[in-house]
Amino acid sequence: MSDGQWEKIGFLLPGKASDPDRSGLDNREFVKGCLWVLRSGAHWCDLPEHYGKRKTVHRRFSCRCHAGVWERIFELQTADRDNQYLGRVVS
């Protein structure tokens, strides 16, 4: 995930450095871990450790699903007609 891509979506993810277990500092790695699972088709239990504890990442993923965060991110990304990554996924 490039810095530009992160700048476009990072503000949509809850959490800040002062919140325990909701650190905004690791949100980028959290998103990369979620993308790894979704792209690979692997189970959450196979998530590499450098993305965080698998149960924690899965719980955060589920909470953001229920809060509509992923939907807002997807809407933002699909509104960007110059999003080359999305073009490869949709095509």
Score class of each variant (00 low, 15 high):
residue 49 E to A: 06
residue 19 D to P: 04
residue 31 V to N: 00
residue 40 S to A: 13
residue 63 C to S: 12
residue 19 D to F: 13
residue 11 F to N: 11
residue 17 A to H: 09
residue 79 A to F: 09
residue 1 M to S: 01
residue 28 R to E: 02
residue 24 G to R: 09
residue 28 R to D: 00
residue 37 V to H: 04
residue 62 S to F: 04
residue 83 N to K: 07
residue 24 G to H: 11
residue 9 I to R: 02
residue 25 L to R: 13
residue 13 L to C: 08
residue 10 G to K: 12
residue 30 F to A: 00
residue 32 K to N: 00
residue 27 N to Q: 07
residue 77 Q to F: 06
residue 46 D to M: 02
residue 33 G to D: 02
residue 51 Y to D: 06
residue 24 G to Q: 12
residue 6 W to T: 01
residue 54 R to L: 03
residue 56 T to C: 07
residue 28 R to N: 03
residue 24 G to P: 10
residue 87 G to W: 13
residue 42 A to G: 06
residue 88 R to G: 02
residue 85 Y to S: 08
residue 68 G to S: 07
residue 55 K to T: 12
residue 74 F to D: 09
residue 22 R to F: 14
residue 75 E to Q: 14
residue 76 L to W: 01
residue 50 H to Q: 07
residue 83 N to D: 14
residue 44 W to N: 10
residue 1 M to T: 01
residue 38 L to M: 11
residue 34 C to M: 06
residue 8 K to N: 09
residue 85 Y to Q: 11
residue 23 S to E: 09
residue 57 V to G: 03
residue 48 P to R: 05
residue 76 L to N: 08
residue 53 K to N: 13
residue 50 H to F: 03
residue 51 Y to L: 04
residue 30 F to D: 00
residue 4 G to D: 10
residue 67 A to C: 09
residue 21 D to R: 15
residue 42 A to K: 02
residue 10 G to Y: 03
residue 2 S to V: 00
residue 71 E to Q: 14
residue 66 H to K: 14
residue 58 H to D: 03
residue 2 S to T: 03
residue 13 L to R: 10
residue 66 H to V: 11
residue 12 L to E: 02
residue 55 K to M: 08
residue 56 T to V: 09
residue 29 E to L: 09
residue 60 R to I: 04
residue 87 G to S: 13
residue 40 S to W: 02
residue 91 S to R: 11
residue 17 A to L: 09
residue 5 Q to D: 08
residue 32 K to W: 00
residue 9 I to N: 07
residue 12 L to N: 01
residue 31 V to Y: 00
residue 46 D to G: 05
residue 11 F to K: 13
residue 44 W to H: 14
residue 84 Q to G: 06
residue 40 S to H: 13
residue 51 Y to K: 03
residue 71 E to K: 14
residue 64 R to K: 08
residue 79 A to K: 14
residue 72 R to A: 04
residue 88 R to F: 06
residue 13 L to Q: 10
residue 20 P to K: 15
residue 15 G to P: 12
residue 23 S to V: 06
residue 71 E to A: 14
